[in-house]
């Protein structure tokens, strides 16, 4: 057991002033969060699941449906299938966004975090930036691999799509949608501070409520469908949406972005006000 004294180890006296060494700012908080993200297994598993489900299911669905889509009986567009797996991959993005925040609350580590970075807004911003960047890259790559595999089947059926226009937009749009979902979930995570609660709340809002508002009658129902975050945000991730009633890809993504921004502001306010 080593019990070397501190001064022997560091060779400097304590109680010095803190002008030595640079003052840590947002970059430091970002670095710390990056180390955290890389050093838990759940990150790797979640991103692997995003890729396998996102690309794999797209290829599978295109492979199974290519002949039907090429036939005159088809009432869907192949453009709706070329990013099919991303609908499932978004669940992984929710899990990643939640764990990055709520695992700190469940383990008590959030206190270490806020003691190290007392400007709490930096912690929120650093986590948001990292989660969205990672998901944007992984989401875009996943969509491109899914396209490459899926389009091979569509090509053989004679309905292949070139990687341009709406198809190309949907590739980056898939990354952007996953990034947005990650941000959305990070915000909810800071608000609810509970893993299961956060994942259920976001999935319920995105997947279940998004469909249930169809039952609201009249124009109100139509608008609710358009404005629900999952419906508004997902249009950008596919060349042709399954649901013809949703907002356009860019308008929809703008609405989703505003909703996410509102939640992030709420998270920021609560994180600063609440005891850790």
């Amino acid at each position: 057991m080593s019990t070397t004294t501190l001064s022997a180890v560091t060779g400097q006296p304590p109680a010095r002033d803190l002008t030595d060494g640079p003052t840590p700012g947002f970059g430091r908080a970002l670095q710390a969060e990056w180390v955290k993200l890389r050093t838990v297994r759940s990150t790797g598993w979640t991103l692997l699941a995003t890729f396998v489900l996102g690309a794999g299911l797209t290829i599978l669905m295109c492979g199974l449906n290519a002949d039907w889509l090429a036939s005159p009986k088809a009432d869907e567009s192949p453009g709706s299938f070329i990013t099919w797996g991303m609908m499932i991959a978004q669940i992984c993005a929710v899990v990643l966004g939640a764990l990055v925040v709520t695992s700190e609350y469940s383990t008590g580590m959030i206190r270490s975090t806020f003691a190290a970075v007392p400007t709490r807004g930096r912690v929120v911003a650093a986590k948001a930036l990292l989660v969205s960047s990672v998901l944007f890259v992984v989401g875009t790559v996943t969509a491109l691999v899914g396209y490459a595999g899926g389009n091979w089947f569509l090509d053989r059926a004679g309905i292949g799509m070139p990687l341009e226009g709406d198809v190309l937009r949907a590739m980056f749009g898939s990354g952007a949608f996953l990034a947005g979902i990650g941000l959305f979930t990070v915000a909810v995570g800071f608000i609810l501070r509970h893993t299961a609660g956060t994942i259920s709340a976001v999935l319920a809002l995105m997947l279940i409520l998004g469909n249930m508002v169809n039952l609201v009658p009249g124009t109100l129902g139509d608008w609710l469908v358009k404005l629900m975050p999952g419906n508004a945000g997902s249009a950008i991730s596919t060349p042709v949406s399954f649901n013809p009633d949703v907002l356009g890809p860019w308008t929809g993504f703008g609405v989703f972005g505003l909703e996410t921004a509102a939640l992030l502001v709420l998270a920021w306010v609560l994180v600063r006000r609440r005891d850790a």
Binding site: R28, A32, E33, V35, V40
Partner: peptide
């Protein structure tokens, strides 16, 4: 789920 060394590494990173 994080190793002792990694726990100290993120702390070190956060404060330069």
């Amino acid at each position: 789920g994080r190793s002792a060394r990694d726990h100290l590494r993120w702390l070190a990173a956060s404060n330069g």
